[in-house]
C-alpha cells in the first residue's frame, strides 16, 4: 500500500467543519502564500524541526550524524542545514525532541484507525474527518484513498482545499466528500498571483464546478490587513456566495503571524508581518458588511 506523508493529526477540532472533527494535515502544497500559517506543510518531504532550547546536550545527534551537521560547543547546539542530507538519524536518537521530524509516512489504514478512535464523538456531534494541509490534492491518490475509506466507515468527510487543482481530480473525489472548506484567498487576480504564485481564475472556476455538482461548501477567507481587507474584495466574496447554491456560509479568518516561529524551526526565513494583523474593529466591520449583503457568516 502506498504511504502518504502526514505532518499532524489533531483530534477535537471544533472549527474545521461541523461537529467534533479529527483533522489530518497532509504535507505538500502547490501554492506558496506569503502569509502561510503552516510553513511546515509546504514541502512534500520529511523535514527537521530544530528547537535548541529543548537540547540537553546529550550529544547523541553529534555521534550519529555522518555529515557533521550537528555540533555542540560550550553547551550550545549548532545545526547546519547545508551539511544536513535529511537522513533523519538524529531525530531518531533525540530524547528531548530538540531535533524532530516534521512529517511521518503513514498508510491510509493507519490514518483511518487513528481517526476512528473518536467515532463516538463524531456520531454525537455530527462531526468526522477533515483533510487539510498543505493542500490535500498535492497527495491526490492518498487523499482519495482516505476519503473512500472514511466513507466506508460511515465517517463524515470535509476537505480543506485552495482549489488550485485539476478539475478531473476534484471530480474524482466528489462522491466521497461531504463538504469542502474552500479557501478564497483573494479575488484580485494580480494580487493573488503576486502573493500566492498562482492565479485565482481556476480556483473560482472550480468552486462553481463543485457547487454545480451539488456539493456543500464553506468559504474560508483569510483577512489580511493591507492586502485583501478591502470593500471590493468583501463585495466579491458576497457576490461569489450569492451565486452558489450549496454554500453554507463564509468564515473570516484573521491573519496571524504564528507561522513565522514554525518557519524559524524549519530554518526557513519568513517575514513576520505584524502589520498584516487586522484589528478587531476592522474584522467586525468586514463581518457587518457581509451580513448586510445577506451572507451567512460562520463564527
Amino acid at each position: 500500500m502506498k504511504k502518504g506523508l502526514v505532518f499532524d493529526i489533531q483530534k477535537y477540532c471544533t472549527h474545521d467543519g461541523p461537529g467534533i472533527r479529527t483533522t489530518v494535515f497532509l504535507k505538500g502544497c502547490n501554492l506558496n502564500c506569503a502569509w502561510c500559517h503552516n510553513p511546515e506543510s509546504i514541502k512534500k518531504i520529511i523535514e527537521i524541526y530544530f528547537t535548541p532550547e529543548k537540547c540537553i546536550n546529550c550529544g547523541n545527534c553529534v555521534a550519529v550524524c555522518e555529515n557533521g551537521a550537528h555540533l555542540i560547543k560550550k553547551g550550545k547546539h549548532f545545526y547546519s542545514r547545508k551539511k544536513c542530507t535529511l537522513c533523519l538519524k538524529c531525530a531518531g536518537v533525540c530524547d528531548s525532541k530538540a531535533v524532530e521530524c516534521v512529517g511521518k509516512e503513514m498508510t491510509s489504514n493507519e490514518v483511518i484507525k487513528k481517526v476512528k478512535e473518536d467515532f463516538e464523538f463524531y456520531e454525537a456531534s455530527g462531526g468526522g474527518l477533515t483533510l487539510s494541509g498543505g493542500e490535500p490534492f498535492s497527495q491526490f491518490e492518498f487523499t482519495l484513498e482516505l476519503l473512500k475509506k472514511a466513507h466506508a466507515e460511515r465517517i463524515n468527510t470535509c476537505v480543506e482545499t485552495n482549489g488550485a487543482v485539476e478539475k478531473s481530480r476534484l471530480a474524482a473525489v466528489l462522491p466521497y466528500v461531504d463538504l469542502f472548506l474552500y479557501d478564497i484567498k483573494d479575488t484580485g487576480t494580480k494580487r493573488h498571483k503576486y502573493f500566492t504564485g498562482a492565479a485565482c481564475d481556476r480556483i473560482l472556476e472550480n468552486l462553481k464546478f463543485v457547487d454545480s455538482k451539488g456539493k456543500q461548501t464553506i468559504l474560508r477567507c483569510l483577512m489580511i490587513k493591507g492586502v485583501n481587507l478591502t470593500a471590493k474584495h468583501l463585495a466579491n466574496i458576497a457576490n461569489i456566495y450569492m451565486h452558489l447554491k450549496h454554500c453554507k456560509g463564509v468564515e473570516l479568518l484573521p491573519y496571524h503571524p504564528y507561522g513565522t516561529s514554525k518557519a524559524e524551526k524549519l530554518g526557513a526565513s519568513r517575514k513576520k508581518n505584524t502589520r498584516w494583523i487586522p484589528s478587531e474593529t476592522k474584522l467586525q466591520r468586514a463581518k457587518q458588511l457581509l451580513l448586510k449583503k445577506k451572507v451567512e457568516v460562520i463564527e
Binding site: 463516538e120 454525537a124 455530527g126 462531526g127
Partner: peptide
C-alpha cells in the same frame, strides 16, 4: 476558543453525549 461560536457549543454538546455513550 474551542467552544466559540455555534459549532463550539455544538461540539461541547457532542462531548456530553459521547461521555454518556462511553
Amino acid at each position: 476558543t474551542s467552544v466559540k461560536g455555534k459549532n463550539g457549543v455544538a461540539a461541547l454538546e457532542g462531548v456530553l453525549k459521547a461521555f454518556v455513550k462511553l
